[in-house]
Each structure stands twice: as C-alpha cells, then as structure tokens.
Nucleic acid binder design. Structure first.
Lengths: 142, 142
DNA sequence: ACACTATTTATAAAGATTATAAAGTAAGAA
DNA sequence: TTCTTACTTTATAATCTTTATAAATAGTGT
C-alpha cells in the first residue's frame, strides 16, 4: 500500500507524521489527479476546518524535499503536485486541462548528447506533451 | 535580419508597431538570453522612462499569440521569454540558472506513441534538461 | 507524563500578473 | 497632409499564488 510506504519514508527521514500530513498524502495518492495546493486545501476543508493554506504549502515542500512528491509548473498560474510512483511523463489537454500519465522509456540519449554538447553534468530532464483529449476533440467536431 | 522579419510578421497579422514593441523585440533578439518580463522592463527603463510594466506583459502576450515568442515556465517565480528562431531545447543549470540552447531532432516518435496510447491529438511537446554547468561544477570542486 | 522541538495556525507581506479607465498614438482614408 | 478611429500605453489598483513571522499547539523519544 502506497500510503504506508510514504509514511515510512517520512519516519525514516525524521519528518513528523501529523494528521494534516497524513491527510494530504492520502489525498494525493487516492485522488489520482494532479491537484494544485488550493485544490488540496479545499478538499480537506471538511476534515480540517482550521487548517491553514501555509500548512499545505509547507508540507508539499517537505514532501518534495523528501522525494515523495513532484512539483509540476506549467504555464498557468499555480503549480500542480504529483505523487511520485514510477517515472512517467504527462500528456496535457490544451482545451480542458486534463492530465494523463504516459509511460515511456527514459530519454537517456538526449541527456548524453546534451552533456556532450554543453559540458553540463546532467541530473534529469522534464518533458510534457500537449494536445487535445478525445472528449474535447469530439466536442469541437460537434 | 531577424528584427525586420519579426516586424513584418506583426504587420501581416495586423498588430501595430509601436516604439515600445519595437524596442522589446529588439531587446529579445539582441540580448541572446531568456529574460523575464521584469528584466525587459528594467533594460528599457533608460529609453522609455515612462513605460509601464503592463506594457511589457501585454506585448509579450501579443508576441506569443503571434508566434514570435515562447513563454518558458520553470519552477521559479516568473516566466522567461524566448524569441522563437529554430526549434531547440534548453539545458538549465540548477546552481546558477544559466540557460543554454541545445539542438536536437524533434521527438516525433514520442508524440506518435503518446497519441496512440492516450487518444489525444498531439500538437507539440516541451522538454528541458537540468544539470550543473561547467563553471558551477568547477566551483563546487574547489 | 515530561520536555523538547517541530509543526500548525492566523495573519501579513511579497512578488508576479492582470484589470481598468483615461490619455495618447499608429495607420489607413479622405 | 490632416482626420478619424480603434488600438495602445500609462498609471494605478486589484488579484492571485506563495512565503515569512510569531505565538500557540502537538508529535516523539525518554
């Protein structure tokens, strides 16, 4: 179970497990989506009426530092957060914003060439693919 | 000359050529960097002491809509703007923020597979490569 | 249960971007 | 060239996301 593993990761790195952290992780894992900090804040309003937005941001930062969560910055206003499972890319609908996971073997070759050409020591890369999802495509066609 | 072509593009699409627009384009082309809106604003302060930040933002949006400029959104606070010449990717130093252009044949295969797996109609993709530049690498090593 | 320290909360502050309305100006028409 | 009109710019305020601060609260090992 992913939640248990995530909590173990926190324990191992000496991060305290608070009810808020538990709930945020649970939401990230179960929602199967790529929520913004505000999405999470709103989703947990019922359970934690007094939780501060800062708590959401603080904990997302902690999770990111520990490697449990990845922050996705697209063109729009706010970051999205993705619980890290296996390495995958995202396909994003430009019309409705839907994000679909997409597995693809790592682009090691690109990193090697980049390293060779620029002299950088490469650590990682990011890639996203943009287009129109089937739903929006059929709507456009009437 | 790139500036002339850019101005022609504006004329063709019915976008008025104002001194501010001229100067912003000129700066984007000649600076050879990837400035933020504020960088541009500051760089043109001398020539246009009364120019408003809103003008910079408005025109960068116009340029983007016309296809002259690409907006780059990374993790940090503000967007960077890149004058579109040929298709290329960016290699970014995680230590000092330097951005180096990197040419690589388009990843058509990735787009095809993504289209096949998700049913999306793919329009484009973005990719960036992260690492440490030679300067920062040598500093780290003393 | 205690003590220590990290965390949460509430609030304010910072920073980037956008909205608004009045004044100004580019570009084609007369 | 001058006129006219719609588009731009300016100045300012508002909005939105994210971070900083300080006091109150609550995990965790002993």
């Amino acid at each position: 179970m992913e939640l248990k593993e995530a909590l173990d990761t926190l324990k191992d790195t000496g991060v305290r497990i608070t009810p808020q952290r538990h709930a945020i992780l649970e939401y990230l894992i179960s929602s199967m989506s790529h929520p913004t900090a505000d999405d999470i804040y709103k989703a947990l309003e019922g359970k934690f009426p007094n939780m501060s937005v800062a708590t959401v941001y603080n904990n997302l930062r902690v999770f990111r530092e520990v490697g449990l969560v990845k922050e996705l910055t697209y063109g729009d206003a706010s970051s999205r957060f993705d619980f890290v499972t296996t390495h995958h890319y995202h396909v994003i609908c430009e019309s409705c914003g839907k994000i679909v996971d997409f597995h693809y073997p790592g682009l090691d070759e690109v990193e090697h060439l980049a390293s060779h050409v620029t002299g950088f020591k490469i650590s990682h890369h990011r890639m996203e693919i943009y287009g129109t999802c089937p739903d929006c495509a059929s709507k456009e066609a009437h």
